[in-house]
Every structure is written in structure tokens, then in C-alpha cells.
Amino acid sequence: MIEVHNIHKSFDGVKVLDGISGVFETGKTNLLLGASGTGKSVLLKCIVGLIKPDIGSVTFDGTYFTNNKLGIKQEIRRKIGMLFQSSALFDSMTVEKNIEFPLKMLGDMEKDERIDRVNTVLKRVGLEGANKKMPSELSGGMKKRVGIARAIAPHCTYLFCDEPNSGLDPLTALKIDELIKEITEEYGITTIIVTHDMNSVIEIGDKIFFLFKGKKLWEGTRDAIMDTDVKELNEFIFSNRLMRDAKKIEDEEEQQEVNGNNR
């Protein structure tokens, strides 16, 4: 369980996070939902300590984290798996070396075991056989999947994913979402996912936190989200739906065209 208490953060006088609190439960996929630029990535980085919040604190399973001693922070961090928005693969290393890296640095596995583990997670993200590729040879979506593989390789206790399925086709996006949910439930880890995709909300959102301009406006389950009376959230859902409806209409038109041509 991760507890976030009253986090504030400004950059050069511009408030990005304005008093965010929340409890992220173990074994659940927690979603941070919000439009571009609302501070989702900054919040995630505050939680893992890459950005120091101006005010506020974070505890991991009861252990105080934010301003604790470096040793204790590093101990907690070794239990964290994180996927960055830009994937952040080490570009001087092959895919295999990238995924093996945390195992090598933090674990006491033998070489064979490590390679086994690399192959297992690569298979789970649907990239078996990509071991010897360099990051520069991968597409954006493939990089994302390697990033996820690297995050989950060392059996983490806490998993953070910054937009795991943006830039992926709908089918792969769905697979990645399901993979993250599976892992979360299977190993009982605490997962926080940043997203602006309503599909993810409907498919895997156990608990959703809606951010708007640095504030948390709403939290609740995916069943409750459709009945919300928060105006900003409704607009957000509506805009997402609009897009999907438009897509549906397009598809139907295409279908009709195909039918027409067949006739």
C-alpha cells in the first residue's frame, strides 16, 4: 500500500501539483487519469522520489520515504519497477542487456537464470527473439514493451507505469493492460498506472484518481465513474467517448462502403 499525503509541487512559481493525497492499495491497479499537462508524470516522479515535492510525504507499506535517509530510500527503490513515458531504455545496451540489468545489479541470480528470466518476460510482452536488438532499432511501441519487461523482470513489489499503452495499436494496448493487471493480481503488488485512455479505465481500473490542473477532483471505482457529477471528469469521459463514437461511425461507413461495393 502506498500512501500519498498532501503533495505540492511548483516549477519556477507555477503550481503543478496542488495538494494531492490518496491511498493506493496492494493487489489493485490504480489509475491516475487526466488530460495532458495536468501533472500526472510529475506526481509519479514525486512518489518514487525522482522529484522532491515542496510539501507532502509518501509512505510505502508504512515506511516513510520522501525525506528519509538515502539508504532506506534505495532499499525501497530496489522493490520498485518503473516504466517511463519515454521508455528510458539504456541505448548503449541490447534489449537483453537492458532487461538483465536490474537483475544483475540488484539480485543474486546466476547468468543462466537471468537469461531465462529475460526470455520469460520478453515472451510475456510479445517480443520473444528480440534479445539482440538495440533500442535504436525498435519502434516506439516495442520500446514501451521492452520498458515494461525491464520493470517487471525483478519481481517488484511496486509497479509504476507512465502511459504504458500510448502509441500502441488497440490490440497490443489491450494486451499490455491485461498483462499489467495479471501481474498485479498474481504477485499481489501495488500498481499505479498513468493514463488518459478511457479504454484502460474500463478494462483494468480497480481504482481511479482523476487529476485536473494539479488537483485530485475525483476518486472511485470504474463502475462509479460513469455516474459522476464532477463536470471536468464528465467532459473528459465525453471527449474520449466522442472519439470512440467517431471511430465507430467511420468503421460503420467503411463497412457500408465495402458492402456496397460487394453488391
Binding site: G49, E75, R77, A88, D91
Partner: peptide, 18 residues
């Protein structure tokens, strides 16, 4: 510099590596 702006340094830090 490249490692910093592409978040590779952050990735190391999150793994608990100095």
C-alpha cells in the same frame, strides 16, 4: 546529457542505483 534528457538517469535512480 543524452542519458539525462531521455530519463535513463532517472531509470537508474529508480532501480536504487546511485
Amino acid at each position: 546529457g543524452t542519458m539525462q534528457i531521455t530519463e535513463q538517469v532517472d531509470a537508474l535512480e529508480v532501480m536504487g542505483i546511485n
